[in-house]
């Protein structure tokens, strides 16, 4: 296998990067980790004339807690930087766990959160939990910057809402009222396998310590069972305002089974994926309540 020839740039400022994107338009691709991009180029699915590395942009790998606001993660932070981030672990270990379930160690050292998002692969592991926690994406463009809900980035399988001259620079997870969250994937091997189904759950609960656990608010997101990460609004409606019981979880699972929109491929059939979404929604609800954000 080989990579077709391309010119390479490593701009050191966002404006420089945007200028290059503006100049080369569709001929250019942004490279960050490259673990998704380079295989696609080897398979000749993409043949950019120009690669623009964003690794040298200032603060692009920074992970920090902005007091009173939330966690900011630079687009070029690698999966392992997230897995081992004290900032993220102290607040939302569920995000770290999701990152740790991804690919292989060698890939997690290179692949980035930004790449995991803009590649918009339906089975990506980070988007479901980030969306469940209400994350936003900061997108830089020529002379402007916009912040949008993360779920709006995804417009279709491997399609995102970024213009050719825009750049994802930061993911922000706001402080919120969610008391527990979790992400679990079902894959066909214990390491290095894509999610056949991924389910993320974030809940705001009340009274759980007193044994009368009620669910005040819920965000449920399914991965790998729709063209984009999919909010489980009907399943959310089932659990919102209810006491946290096995029956409620079971019912949410049934609703999840019918509201997801999976396809059949060589990894799993539509029917099997539906079943898994149901089972995993049920299990994730239970686990989130039992384990908090762990």
């Amino acid at each position: 296998m080989y990579l077709p020839d391309f010119d390479y740039y490593a701009p050191e400022s966002v404006s420089e990067a945007l200028d290059l994107l503006t100049e080369h338009k569709e001929n250019a691709k942004v490279i960050c980790g490259g673990t998704d991009l380079l295989p696609k180029m080897k398979h000749e699915l993409l043949a950019p004339k120009v690669l623009i590395s964003i690794k040298k942009l200032p603060n692009i790998k920074k992970i920090e807690y902005v007091k009173g606001k939330g966690i900011s993660i630079g687009a070029a932070a690698t999966h392992n930087e997230i897995v081992f981030s004290e900032v993220v672990n102290s607040k939302y270990p569920s995000i770290c766990n999701a990152a740790a379930q991804m690919a292989a160690n060698q890939v997690r050292h290179v692949g980035t959160i930004g790449g995991n998002i803009v590649s918009a692969v339906p089975s990506a592991d980070l988007p479901p939990i980030l969306i469940a926690l209400g994350a936003t994406a900061k997108i830089a463009g020529p002379g402007k910057e916009r912040v949008i809900p993360l779920e709006d980035v995804f417009t279709g399988p491997q399609q995102n809402c970024l213009e050719a001259n825009e750049l994802l620079t930061e993911i922000f997870i706001p402080d919120g009222d969610m008391t527990c969250s979790t992400y679990h994937k079902f894959a066909l091997r214990r390491a290095g396998a894509l999610a056949v189904v991924g389910v993320a759950v974030a809940l705001q609960t009340k009274g759980c310590a007193d044994g009368a656990c009620s669910i005040e608010d819920a965000r449920i997101v399914y991965g790998a069972v729709a063209p984009t990460p999919m909010r489980g609004v009907k399943a959310e409606a089932v659990v919102k305002g209810k006491m946290a019981t096995d029956d409620v979880f079971e019912e949410a699972g049934k609703v999840a089974y019918s509201e997801c929109k999976p396809i059949s491929d060589f990894r799993a059939s539509e029917e099997y994926r539906r079943n898994l979404v149901g089972v995993y929604t049920k299990r994730c609800l239970k686990r989130a309540i039992e384990n908090g954000h762990k």
Binding site: L188, R189, R190, A191, G192, A193, L194, F266, R267
Partner: peptide, 16 residues
């Protein structure tokens, strides 16, 4: 062949 690579043709790992 639709899974002629080690991503799609799943040889078990040390965890399996």
């Amino acid at each position: 062949i639709i899974n002629g690579d080690f991503g799609g043709y799943r040889v078990i790992t040390a965890l399996d």
